[in-house]
Design a protein around this nucleic acid. Structure first.
Lengths: 215, 215, 215, 215
DNA sequence: AATGAATGAGTTTTCATTCAT
DNA sequence: AATGAATGAAAACTCATTCAT
């Protein structure tokens, strides 16, 4: 009883969250029942309402947890002493690491993001706005107009999608084949993704400057 | 009553399918009820069991419809008279057109693909295998070993994800902002995606041949 | 299968309504569960949502049924050929008969009337307004100002309460003692109640005319 | 901390009781949850079990509180020096005053009285018996046989109902219109009610003596 | 080919209560 | 005297499906 090293001795709230993330990633939010979550977490069903005020409360918590970590990634330390390219690479590196360490959290957020769940509609819009605000600095570094909401709004999701794409495929590959990926793979993956991302931004900037030149 | 010009006079089966695709794309398969589908389609609830043998039957039909069209894209006419690059570009071009014309169908398939729905697990595996079989020719054209299931298994999903990624973001952008995309955009999008895709394959090939050279 | 004479062969909707009225009268609306109603009615639980769109739907139906019958009582046939007193007596007579034949219906309506059930708040107000409109003619016959909402608003409930009071006490007396009441009793009851009611109205009229004279 | 002047500093037990009376009167006993009571009273949920041994314990306490006060009313000081009519008027006067000062307490008791709440069934019977015992003296003063349980059993509830009827209507009138009542109104109300009550008793006595004369 | 009433297992949520602190 | 986390049963309701017509 001194400390709590065993799996099942973690805080109930966290156990629910973990179980839910696992199950949501596996079957999707709507397909998972609270009973299943409670059973998987080894807690009483009522605890879900108690801690999260209902099933959507868990999804809310999951998304908020993910978004919080995601926002931190965009805050590159000493960004003004580095080149835009270096910043972009650093962000990509952190992002890959983050998603690798929180794959299910990321997948659930990514999967549920476009789906209409009325109770979290506001939350999604709020976070997307916060991200745009946070991300705009790097885009201005690349010469994009910070007031150009549409183009700026494209970067974040693209960045996210680009990385998540791999982890999504990976989970299918794990399912169909039995493949696994090592550190070296992710080093290269980061490099390729960063390059693609930079190319994408450069393309956006170039295309933007002369209004959209005739082809 | 001679022919069927009005929206609501289409075949009931098709009306159900259309309604389901729309709703599944909006809320996700598990979050949509048969009553909702029936109401949206303007048919009796029992018709869903009658035509599709239950709710999963609709998802099955949706995925099969999508996969069928997707397979056709991989069959480039007169492929042996064209370069591998030209074939890749042609595939990408068809794919973008296909997803553009069947966005919701594609999104539903993409969204539900990694989710565990026991009744369609077999269907998914079957189609993925058929695709690998169909796609292997182009990969051999690029110098990949057709027996290398893992690498070949990566191409299809990557290709798919790359394209779908845009349409997914697009639906969010439509929601949050009011952005829309024109033909010119998709021309360029196809070119960029094809380039990225080719680069990816070239990378895979290069990395593979000499086992993995020291950096 | 020709006709349906047996108790349990009535229409499910009616069986639910009957069971609910009985149970609501016994324990109060909030204390009765849908499972209990369904069991008592011998129908599947889902039928309650199916026919009444939820538990409050039953209460709504009960109250509407009662109110409808109550309204009819206020429409005295050939009222203009009778004295106000005769009309009042006729109303009282019908009312006693009505409540005697629909005791539980009346008791449930009476019991739940002052309780806050948000979903039926509007319904209650609507019916009360309709009653005031319907009842105003008799009050004008007695010399009351039909625009005097407050005083007119008192008559209906008083009339109702006066009669219901007896049936409420009766149910307790049945519970505590084993007393029962016969036709002769109700004849006299009607006469007394009518007298009291007329005295009440006369009192209201007298008190009203000279504004409220100093005592 | 010396004395307790503020609203929220009253004894927790009393705060619970007050909150419960208010809520029970508003929504009915069964429709109110302990959490709601605890929140309204500003105490911890467990305090309800602690002080009242559960939700029904509160209802028990409420009813007992009301019944106690009600019993006192029946004990007219120096009753034998006054006429039966004077005693009846004094009782009615005290009763109106009592209900006016404890309206919600009275309404809750009145509302829940005919409802089946197994845990308080005994309590209700006990108090009704005590009341009959206490009230019988006045009835004998009017010439009724104290052994005639049925007739004696009618007086108390009638008396109570007669008064409560007004307060019940009043709460609806407050809801629907915005009417309020002053001291003068209650003076007159008391006189009318007492008259009605006396008439009722006289009627009972007269009807009783010659067994029930043929009409 | 099509209906809609009916089913029963399923859903999430809330209940009053208890227990360790 | 008081807390609030935790419980398990029960709440109302919805589900996909079936069946008689």
């Amino acid at each position: 009883m001194a400390d709590k090293p065993s799996e099942s001795d973690r805080e109930p709230r966290q156990r629910i969250l973990d179980a839910a993330v696992r199950l949501f990633a596996q079957k999707g939010f709507a397909a998972v029942g609270v009973r299943e979550i409670a059973a998987e977490a080894g807690v009483n069903i009522s605890m879900i309402s108690y801690y999260f005020d209902g099933k959507v409360g868990i999804l809310r918590a999951i998304m908020e947890t993910f978004f919080e970590g995601y926002l931190k990634i965009l805050d590159v330390p000493d960004a003004d002493t580095k080149s835009a390219e270096a910043c972009a690479f650093e962000i990509m590196d952190s992002l890959v690491r983050y998603v690798r360490e929180n794959t299910e959290l990321a997948l659930v957020t990514y999967n549920e993001l476009p789906l209409e769940v009325p109770e979290i509609a506001e939350l999604k819009v709020d976070w997307i706005k916060r991200m745009i605000k946070h991300a705009s600095w790097i885009l201005t570094r690349f010469g994009l107009d910070p007031a150009d909401g549409i183009r700026i709004g494209m970067i974040g999701p693209t960045l996210f999608s680009l990385v998540i794409m791999h982890f999504r495929i990976r989970s299918i590959q794990r399912l169909v084949f039995g493949f696994s990926f090592d550190d070296a793979y992710y080093e290269e993956f980061t490099r390729i993704a960063a390059t693609f991302f930079l190319d994408g931004i450069h393309g956006l900037v170039a295309r933007d400057q002369p209004e959209r030149k005739p082809e």
